[in-house]
Design a binder for these strands. Sequence first.
DNA 1: TGCGCATTTCAACGAGCGTTGAATACTAGT
DNA 2: ACTAGTATTCAACGCTCGTTGAAATGCGCA
Lengths: 215, 215
Amino acid sequence: MGDDKQKTRDRILDAAEELFATRSFEGVSVRQIMSKAGADVSLAYYHFKSKRDLFDQVMLRRAEILNEIRLNALIEVETLRGDEAPTVEEIISAFTSPLLDLLDREHDEWSHYFQLIAQINNSPEWGGELMTRYFDPLVRRFVDALKRALPDCDDVDLMWSYHILSGALTLTFVETGRIDNLSGGKVKSSNIAQIRDRMPQFLAAGFERLCKKQV
Amino acid sequence: MGDDKQKTRDRILDAAEELFATRSFEGVSVRQIMSKAGADVSLAYYHFKSKRDLFDQVMLRRAEILNEIRLNALIEVETLRGDEAPTVEEIISAFTSPLLDLLDREHDEWSHYFQLIAQINNSPEWGGELMTRYFDPLVRRFVDALKRALPDCDDVDLMWSYHILSGALTLTFVETGRIDNLSGGKVKSSNIAQIRDRMPQFLAAGFERLCKKQV
DNA sequence: TGCGCATTTCAACGAGCGTTGAATACTAGT
DNA sequence: ACTAGTATTCAACGCTCGTTGAAATGCGCA
């Protein structure tokens, strides 16, 4: 009955994903996860080696899908242009839009995972190792594309620009409602359509100003 | 001996600040904090009402200092200009540079606090309420200044631009070493001097492009 | 029907958690 | 030297934690 096995395992992963995302790794107990998953505590240790292993599997489950989608988006803009390099905005859009689209169109399935990413990306303890492990190859690929679009850009400028990009994208994943408050309700953090095109526009302008100044 | 009281209380706050910042609220026990502070467990409950109260006092201790420094920086660029509005870059710089300067010049004293800010800003559970409580008045003041510098800017563009700014600044607080890896060691996340001027330059370009497009 | 295996339940372990109350040490003012 | 009050220590509470081993269940196949 390998079908039920998959079903239970996935229910545990779903519950863990949501709770880890909203309350952090240490802020949630295995018992709370299994209670949300509707299964006995010890089943967690039948399907996973430990709480930490469960966490790693939560991370891994969607990372591969994500990397493939984003890589395809980059390849698409590159081949579309043929021999000449894509614009900075097109590259950035290939990096950010797949995520924002998933957050917009398949919100229930992806929002918790993105929140989890945001949390570990901003944690000194987890951020370095985990983000490197799961996303570095893809990021290098994008940085290379940006270097080709901005051939005269200094490495220091380029890397700090990417750093700003990364921070901006990350915060968008966590819908704290702060922007709703600050705008007096006129702007909603849940309205991803609003940020989808603005994000690459804003960031491309930054890249270009920083990289052009010493040409 | 009100002097020793202050000394012990501050040692507890220092230890708590560092541990909360690196391992999160739930990831650290009161016993671990007091062990680092070199004092008995129950002293935590003599100086503070609860673990949560200790956390709040850690947040509060530096928030007021920070708000004053940043407000003064804004007032300074405003009065320097006299009647005409400061440039977008000057306003952004007044918002970001005080923090980056503290991180650079008084690293040991401020780095843990900034890491803590980064962590709660990216937490859906804490981020909304705590950031609003401690920093919203100041943020509103800066957003108003930006509105004056960009009078034709749509509110939606302006708020999302601020959102990007906030995410970029936040991630800079947490030194995960990712940028070190990605750049092959050529760029160091600890080298705040490199980002100090690049951050406002980059972000001002973004604000201006987003806000000018529908004029 | 019964064997073998994957899945699930039940009960428990030692450890650490946040928190408290009572007892002790210290020190400033008389 | 005595007192008042602040600061610190000691021992313990009830509870939850992550994890485990053994027993029970369900199921495809002989």
